[in-house]
Design a protein around this nucleic acid. Structure first.
Length: 277
DNA sequence: CAGTGGCCCTGAGCGC
DNA sequence: TGCGCTCAGGGCCACT
């Protein structure tokens, strides 16, 4: 479900409210993609410092009572959703697999498919957390996302540009919805080999990624099926989508029917007239 | 090293 | 109404 905009909207939905809270207890449901990495009781008493985002991961920095730091890495997978609930909220349901009880409220991970995870690490630089974060590309909404460096990175990739964007090792956070949207905005066909894209068109794609993602964040993300921010609010970017999930419908720019193709196991949407190569 | 496909898991939607 | 198939917003890992 969640790509960068949904994860960022999720973060903004509870980061300030949970900052400074003390962990009172943790309750677990069914196993997630990876085990927590420490006994849940060991989180008791820890203070939440900040909640940051790296790609599609949320990084919750903790300070234990002992004075030692720690990090909880949250990933929403395909179907994960976080809710920040009152301390006296209802007991977890069948798909609620991680409740972080704190003095400010309960952060609950609801994840029917369980592709998500909550992972503890002493710091981002150690263990599984390090392994998961080490190969991530640059953040598209930060100054480090350099246009020329992006164009250069594409030159060494002969895979289709859509798959290079999804891989996340050049730039992070662009998932299946926004990859199609960015390529439409840049006028590039998803099947085009990344290394065959000219410098000027790569620069257009760089700008399209920034525009699409920042626009999506400001619309509260996309709610196609079930995305909700931590207060339960849906996103509205799907109403703005130019191609995603619009197979057979007229292109909003030129009226040509939007085409659906399969790349690997994922579907891609494009306008055959606006995206000629 | 880069690229491809399998796989993890549950639920919804569709055709028959 | 029920069954079986396909597909869904992610991404690791084994293999070529």
């Amino acid at each position: 479900m969640p790509e960068l905009p949904e994860v960022e909207v999720t973060r903004r939905g509870f980061a300030d409210a949970i900052a400074g809270a003390r962990v009172t207890r943790v309750t677990l449901g069914k196993p997630l993609r990876w085990p927590l990495g420490l006994a849940p009781e060991a989180l008791q008493g820890a203070r939440v410092q900040t909640v940051l985002r790296r790609g599609k991961y949320l990084l919750m920095h903790l300070l234990h009572e002992s004075g030692e730091p720690g990090v909880l890495l949250w990933h929403l997978g395909m179907s994960g959703r976080l809710a920040f609930l009152p301390r006296d909220c209802a007991a977890p349901g069948v798909h609620d697999h991680f409740d972080l009880h704190t003095t400010h409220g309960v952060l609950r991970l609801h994840d029917p498919r369980r592709f998500g995870a909550v992972i503890y690490a002493p710091s981002e630089r150690e263990g599984l957390a390090y392994k998961l974060l080490a190969h991530l590309g640059v953040e598209p909404l930060e100054p480090g996302f350099d246009a020329l460096a992006f164009a250069n990175a594409l030159r060494s990739r002969r895979a289709p540009i859509k798959q290079v964007l999804l891989a996340g090792d050049v730039v992070v956070g662009v998932g299946n919805i926004y990859a199609s949207e960015c390529l439409f905005l840049a006028g590039i066909r998803p099947t085009t080999s990344a290394c065959s894209i000219s410098r000027s068109r790569a620069l257009r794609l760089h700008q399209a990624i920034i525009d699409v993602l920042s626009h999506a964040v400001s619309y509260g993300g996309s709610t196609l099926r079930d995305f909700r921010d931590p207060s339960g609010q849906a996103g509205y970017f799907q109403l703005e989508a130019k191609v995603y999930d619009r197979a057979g419908l007229p292109c909003r720019v030129c009226g040509t029917p939007i085409r659906l193709i399969r790349q690997g196991t994922r579907s891609s949407f494009f306008c055959p007239a606006c995206q000629k190569r």
